[in-house]
Design a protein around this nucleic acid. Structure first.
Lengths: 208, 208, 208, 208
DNA sequence: AATGAATGAGTCTTCATTCAT
DNA sequence: AATGAATGAAGACTCATTCAT
């Protein structure tokens, strides 16, 4: 899977403590998005949870929107990193990589309730905010690209012809659907069952 | 003191005009949810679009929440009806029914930009609002149940053993993922391609 | 006690049914003032309780204010009538009349929870509304005048000198205080105890 | 994911300016209740009079209700303190204390037009709001208790038997009636005359 | 005579942001 | 660097009134 590109805004001379404060605020923002939804988050709640006064946000971010954007980027990076790491550690076999990718997609540290909650909260926003939409689309396009390359290689190894693009799209949207569905109905769609669906699908596509 | 006379007013069924107004407001609400997102909808916008003053909502609904809930229910019903109708009209063959279900899931009148937008706007809310969550989960559980029955029958016809429940879950979440992804990135996931992914998946599961 | 003057607005040709409707609305208004307080009364509640639609008020009254004013006048009249009748029926002895007046001031049909509630609800309004204030002051001035005449006659009979005006003022404000206090704290000041205080006061002033 | 750091902000006692603002708003609320009545008070008027924007109330109170409650408590406290102080300064003689209590009940700083107006505005609300009713009843019960003790001691000194409880109730409701009546009809019941009624009553009960 | 559809003004509340200290 | 005081805009809700039918 390709790299998740998340530009970390380069402060001119970000002091040690300033960076910590920014990070504190971002963490609090992430928790708040997960807990209350993207639109219900308030600056007051974030600051209270981070242990600062309301006015502080203005020192580190241009405003609420920027903070929330940074929070979303942070989550995107965590998801991307976790999955990328898992894939790398799975060796070179494309099948093994696909199954590792699935496991990483449905278990910590990438797939935590918090991360998924933020990500799903983003679904609605992606349609409406250009900035968030761009992040959202980029992540999934990268995901599909990475998966597509793996399916292509797996197909070649197996000697089977496979429409890698279509399979990758199907696979990625299956993952997205399981994330979203699991977030809304975790009883019907627990993470284990979700992962199992994906493993089965991959096996059916490229053989066990 | 004179007697307390309490006239019992005969309860009349809602007048024709009342029904029309409620529907007008619901339509406007649906458009607004689709356009601005579930949380960004305002009473003012809805009423302006419907061509009425703000106060009117109080006559027909207990408030904004009830109106929005009705709007969501309406969309859920439209989606459900469209798909149910298509399946019924597809004859009795489970394969044909599955493919009809797919087409209905990705083309009008069930799958319109408006309906999908509302539905996707609901994704975030489902986690946070008990009422909306219940609607959301019910719709998808029904969907999975229906699909599961079709896969079960299709498997028997083909003489293939099939894990109908798992397949149904995979299928339904594939559909959900394609809806959500299509709403956020219609360029990468146009409805036609989405439907094609589903048709292919069904063919792979139960044969063409 | 002098007559309570409450002008009943003379409609030109008040049809039988129109009068009934007005009375229905006034009754409902009285109940609403008693139940929810003078300021919390709404046209909607009154009409609902009277069994009519909201718009009807405009046919019989110039608006909410007039209706409420009529309701207050009605209660004032009931209070006045009940007390005046009781006094008249007590014979000619001023002592007897005073004690009858007390009983009438703290028992039905004049002193009902509803009447007292309306009257007490009026206390705050009397300071602020010229129209209501006028009614309020007139009632109490009449009350004091009537009581004053009785004390004067009672004093002469007993051969005691009595400052009838001051005693009447003291007595009337004792009654008012007991009404108000009883309305706010009926546990501490039940009607029976209130009446007993007044009886005792009169006995102390003019002998038993 | 990094550790969740929750800074515990040290709770500081309200700053001087915060205390001042709260007091400013409470004063403005008191004036507004006195001027327009408890129910006609608006947040806008209060803030305008205090010289601040509307939003400020949210910083210092949970909302309008809390502010008004605080205002009422403040007035109750002023009334209670003024009367208590006067009684204390009157020496130990119960008669002297009773007369001092009367003077304090009908002259500043306890009995100001503003304080009485607020108190009378409260009469109607006491029946309808549990919180306000509790304050109202408590004040008067305390008042009656204090007066009752004085009457008891005064009776013993004089060697007269006196029903202290009944006398205290009569006295307290006389005071309440004179307050209420004076607020509604200050022409008929000026404060001086009201106080005179009370002095006379006390003299009649326990001798001069 | 009566209804109820519709309005629009008025009010409270929330909240992101600004700014003096 | 950090606070929290203060603002002002925006939004939802209530409700008396008007009016066509």
């Amino acid at each position: 899977m390709s790299e998740v590109k998340v530009r970390v805004r380069q402060q001119r001379k970000p002091s040690r403590i300033a960076q910590e404060r920014k990070q504190d605020l971002i963490e609090a923002a992430i928790r708040n998005i997960a807990d209350h939804g993207y639109d219900a988050v308030t600056v007051a709640t974030i600051c209270e949870e981070a242990g600062f006064s309301r006015g502080l946000i203005g020192h580190y971010f241009s405003g609420k929107d920027e903070l929330l954007l940074e929070a979303v980027k942070e989550v995107a990076q965590r998801l991307g990193n976790a999955i990328r790491d898992a894939v790398r550690n799975a060796g070179d076999d494309p099948k093994a990589r696909l199954h590792a990718l699935i496991d990483a997609s449905f278990s910590p540290p990438g797939h935590t309730p918090e991360n998924v909650a933020v990500w799903v909260a983003l679904v609605g926003a992606a349609r409406l905010s250009p900035a968030l939409g761009a992040i959202y689309r980029e992540i999934w396009r990268d995901y599909r690209d990475g998966v597509g390359r793996l399916f292509k290689r797996a197909g070649k190894l197996n000697g089977r012809k496979i429409d890698a693009d279509r399979t990758a799209l199907t696979f990625s949207q299956l993952v997205e659907g399981l994330w979203v569905g699991g977030a809304a109905d975790s009883e019907s769609i627990p993470a284990k069952k979700a992962a199992a669906c994906c493993h089965t699908y991959v096996d059916q596509m490229i053989g066990q």
